[in-house]
Design a protein around this nucleic acid. Structure first.
Length: 291
DNA sequence: TACCAGGAGAGCG
DNA sequence: CGCTCTCATGGT
């Protein structure tokens, strides 16, 4: 083990690390010899799952692991989440297909910026754009010897200094002005992301949607993946397809109608149910979109 | 080649 | 409200 690295072992049950890190909620993890390497905050992290445990390793010694445990949602009562799902055939099949899929608790800014870049992009491409963005604008951080250079996700201030043309060089296309304007709103203090978790869900959602490039879907992603609002229900093309095929196969339903259905039908952990439906639809035909 | 991707925003009736 | 068009870019 390289000098400076430290390890911690988390005991877990019903935790599918691979499904969790490859399910399109985060974009900075890569698989490496049976383990996962990624950046959490300003730290290089390697995660390895064995029977009943996840072993975490950092490049720089770490004494307090509660931040990483929170990111991984180690302490979540997962049985309770499963028990709150509707008892129907589609959910049973979705859970059976990827039991142990979890939701992470991400940094709000990284999550917001990442999903502004996600619109009408495949997950592989989102990963590429974000990797470029981090290399060019993020701080270089310590990685073990022999590992590729590692970079933190760029802060709002770091991105606010860029120009739209420079951001477009990261292959983000028409999303560049949206990311730039949102970075400037956060960097200037005009928009306070730190209060995301304090407001009621509807208030937080309306606030997020005032940001350029943030509509209902991306706002819901930030609420669910970073804000801790487990009832948020992002509706993207896959989830829309899931609802149409699995719940309304015989008649046409509008997006509005599906939204109203989802708001009550899936219960207090609707966002969790949504992630299962999303992952189920993407993987059930062994598609290559992002895996 | 044609179509699609974890959408949003603007214009229109 | 609901519909349509456009916005880059790359994968399949």
């Amino acid at each position: 083990m390289p000098a400076g690295t430290t390890k911690e072992v988390f005991r877990v049950q019903d935790y599918d690390l691979s499904a969790t890190l490859s399910s399109g909620q985060v974009f900075r993890w890569r698989q490496e010899k049976g383990a996962w390497v990624g950046i959490v905050g300003a730290r290089w992290v390697r995660l390895r799952q064995d029977r009943g445990t996840i072993t975490a390793e950092t490049a720089v010694s770490l004494r307090d692991w509660t931040g990483l445990a929170d990111y991984l949602q180690i302490g979540l009562n997962f049985r309770d989440v499963l028990a709150s799902f509707p008892k129907d055939e589609p959910m049973r099949a979705a859970v059976a297909a990827c039991r142990g899929l979890r939701l992470l608790r991400q940094d709000p800014w990284e999550c917001l910026a990442s999903f502004i870049l996600s619109s009408t992009k495949q997950i592989v491409q989102i990963q590429q754009i974000i990797a470029l963005l981090c290399e060019r604008y993020g701080e270089r951080i310590a990685a073990p010897r022999g590992e590729p250079p590692a970079f933190a996700f760029p802060s709002p201030v770091q991105l606010a200094r860029a120009t739209e043309a420079e951001l477009r060089e990261c292959k983000m296309g028409f999303r560049a002005p949206h990311l730039l304007a949102t970075a400037r709103a956060v960097a200037s203090g005009r928009f306070n992301l730190r209060r995301l978790r304090e407001a009621p869900a509807e208030t937080a959602r309306a606030g997020l949607m005032t940001l350029p490039g943030v509509g209902p879907k991306i706002a819901d992603c930030v609420l669910l993946f970073a804000g801790g609002f487990e009832s948020a229900f992002p509706m993207d093309v896959w989830v829309i397809k899931a609802l149409r095929e699995l719940y309304f196969p015989r008649r046409h339903v509008s997006i509005k109608e599906m939204r109203e259905f989802a708001a009550t039908y899936f219960g207090r952990n609707a966002g969790y149910a949504q992630q299962y439906l999303f992952h189920y639809m993407r993987t059930r035909n062994a598609r290559t979109s992002g895996q």
